[in-house]
Amino acid sequence: MEVFLQQLINGLTLGSIYGLIAIGYTMVFGIIGMVNFAHGDVFMVGGFIALILFMVFTAWLGVAVVPALVLVLLLGMVLTGLWNWTIERVAYRPLRGSFRLAPLISAIGMSIFLSNLVQVIQGPRNKPLPPMIQGNFVLMGEGSTTVVLAYKQIVIMVVTVVLLAVFWWLVQKTPLGRAQRACEQDRKMAALLGVDVDRTISITFVIGAALAAVAGVMYLMYYGVVNFSDGFVPGVKAFTAAVLGGIGSLPGAVIGGLLIGLIETMWSAYFTIDYKDVAAFSILAITLIFLPTGLLGRPEVEKV
């Protein structure tokens, strides 16, 4: 029971991070029907930006940890958004309307480029940081079988929930979100009705990257280490989450993220930690083969 509860907490924390990344996949897929393969690497770039900014604020400017984290979060969102804006502008926009696989291949190239760019300019080694937030609540149990809720886990979950609320409001209630949903339904019609489609798509990429940047900060806080190759596997898992939740559906992405996080931690706890990535990849394959619309997705209508 204690093990289960502990894994539940860990899984939800991990799942929040996956959910934040998954939103970027699902939004981009919703609006331009493209798997943004480089999104996992944008998340990794976000993690690196967070690492460097955190060091600038704490080591150079002497800001305390908590205000530094808030600043890192805000500035990191802006800078990672700028990265994704540039990527969309340079590598995807010219290919819109080209044959279907061209953007996917461009995105794969971008993914390889980003991870190796960071490897070259920041070095191939792991970048460890001393723990930012220490301490935890002991919820129940004693001795070796305690259930522990670490402060950093609370921070991760709270930040995720708050951001999702803000983001939900942005998509549902603002003119920007309306334009975004209109483009998702019918890009040509939206353009005829005066929606600036290019701008809306750019903003979608920026929002997706901003959430990925938050995920990057959380990842750095949770594991205390970031590496140039950290984009690929979390990226694929977040994509799995987006597919599992039903691609194109925002609540689906979050639910999928939580599910993937839970499955991963439970699998590691009860089966074997060696095959946890195999489990994630298998879920991806099984979902795509047997449940391609996901849990909350709309079925795709085949037009001749």
């Binding site: 590598a91 291949i105 461009s106 190239g109 993914s111 390889i112 480029f113 190796n116 760019l117 070259v120």
Partner: peptide, 9 residues
Amino acid sequence: TLLFGLAMV
């Protein structure tokens, strides 16, 4: 690898 990714794009 960096140039390879760039070449793809």
